[in-house]
Amino acid sequence: MSSFDDVRDLYQDVILDRARNPRHMHILDPFDAAARGDNPMCGDQVEVRIRRTPDARVAEAAFQARGCAISLASADLMAEAVRGLPDADIRALASDFRDMARTGATHSATPAIEMLRPLSGVCEYPSRVKCATLPWAALIAALDGAQEAQHE
């Protein structure tokens, strides 16, 4: 009765679980870089913080957010996927993720992108793509040393 079968491609169990119980939604302190992302159209906000390893990889990422299930799950999976990666890999991953959110397909099959694949269903919902990509825009802004994500 309450199955909503036709939205299951978007709201997979992983996504509902991550949205209800995010593992990385907390205030990371101390931190080495941080940036905010805002979607003024809908009021969603996210702040991403990262801590670095001595060799400049991401040791830990965490976020604070106000947003929908898609944006929370996306931020939470992102925080996990980028752990231990150098900036160059994160940028490549962000670009692959953005394409996946828009088209459903990825260019690579790294463990990191596989972890994010449950979000590929968002490509069928054009008005929701931004929900999934907002945390990534904030993370990239943090890597760039900016305070705020660029509006897409």
Binding site: F4, D6, V7, L10, Y11, R20, P40, M41, C42, G43, D44, G67, C68, A69, I70, Y125, R128, C131
Partner: peptide
């Protein structure tokens, strides 16, 4: 409670119901 307006609007939309969500 427990459901963001966007998620509500998306599920309603899949049932043919058009509402607005946001600010």
């Amino acid at each position: 409670d427990g459901a963001h307006a966007h998620d509500v609007a998306t599920l309603l939309d899949r049932n043919g119901i058009a509402v607005r969500a946001g600010q």
